[in-house]
Every structure is written in C-alpha cells, then in structure tokens.
Amino acid sequence: MSLADEVAAAHAGHPNPAALVGEFRRTSVLVPVVNDSLMSAELTGIRWLYAFSDEQELARFAVSRGAGPATELPYVRAVGARLLDVVIPAIEGPAGVVLDSGSEQGMVFPPVSGIVPDSVAVDLAEPDEAGDRPGVPAAGGAA
C-alpha cells in the first residue's frame, strides 16, 4: 500500500505500524523552509518537523496559518528515511515528524524506537538523576 493508504487504514482503525513507518521512510515528502531552516514547532519538550504529502496539503496548511492562497511556502523535498535517520538525530533534543499537520489524515512519527534511530529515541534514553527521561513528561505530568 502507499503512504496515503497506510495513513487512511490507521485512521479507519486498521493500523499496521510497521507498514506505516516503512511507507513513510520510502516516500518523498515536502518540508517547508522558513528563514533557511526546516519549519518546526515545539510541544511538550519535543521538536516536531512539519512534512507534507503533496503541494495541496502544504498549501492548505499555509492558508490555515494565515497565508493567502497565492502565497507559496518554500519547501524542500526529502525522503522520510532521511528525515528520521539524518535530520532528527542532528536536532538538539527529542524530535519527531508530523505529516500533513492539521489535516483529518494527519499522522505523527514520534521520537521512539522503531521510528527514529535508537540513539535519539526517548523511550530508550537513560534516565537523569531525578529518574526522568529527557523529552518524556514525568509520571503524572501532562502529555
């Protein structure tokens, strides 16, 4: 199945996580660029890179953020594997990818083992002196 098919299956309640991640890794996505940096946002201590499945999804996102329909948001093309295996480890602190942000078919690829390299997976990180794992909310904390 294609990435779009795997995302649709997950949203329909029939996820195949390994196939979903595999298709993301093989698929070329669009990553918006702002001020010579890949567009991202931070939420709950995790840096999320934005990626889009096609120009229509990217344009919809730009309009939702207040850009006019004729305004183009510059982007680069990257294969999902390159984002997960090269870009994510180069970011200081935990980072993941959100695909088609704000879309009904949006999907997140969090910084956990099986998605990102083990060296940057938050579920494999060594606890700090307080017993907390970097980038993971403490037990009882807001997620």
Rank of each mutant, 00 (worst) to 15 (best):
M39H: 05
T27V: 03
F24V: 05
P111W: 03
L49S: 04
A138D: 13
A10C: 08
S64V: 08
M1Y: 12
E92K: 11
V7N: 03
P17Y: 05
E42P: 12
A18H: 14
D85L: 00
A125G: 13
G114I: 13
A12E: 15
V31R: 01
G68Y: 10
Q105S: 07
V98Q: 15
A51G: 04
Y75Q: 04
A138V: 14
A4E: 06
P17G: 10
P110R: 00
P127N: 08
S119M: 09
P74I: 12
A9L: 15
D132T: 09
A51E: 01
L73F: 12
A51M: 03
H11M: 06
A95S: 15
G13M: 12
A12N: 14
T71K: 09
A41M: 13
N16M: 10
E57Q: 06
S113V: 14
E23R: 13
E23N: 14
A125R: 12
V98E: 08
F109Y: 11
L43Q: 07
G22L: 06
V79T: 03
L38W: 02
P94H: 03
A81Y: 00
G141W: 04
A125T: 14
S28K: 11
V86T: 06
E126N: 10
L83A: 02
L38V: 03
P74W: 14
A41P: 06
I115C: 09
L124M: 14
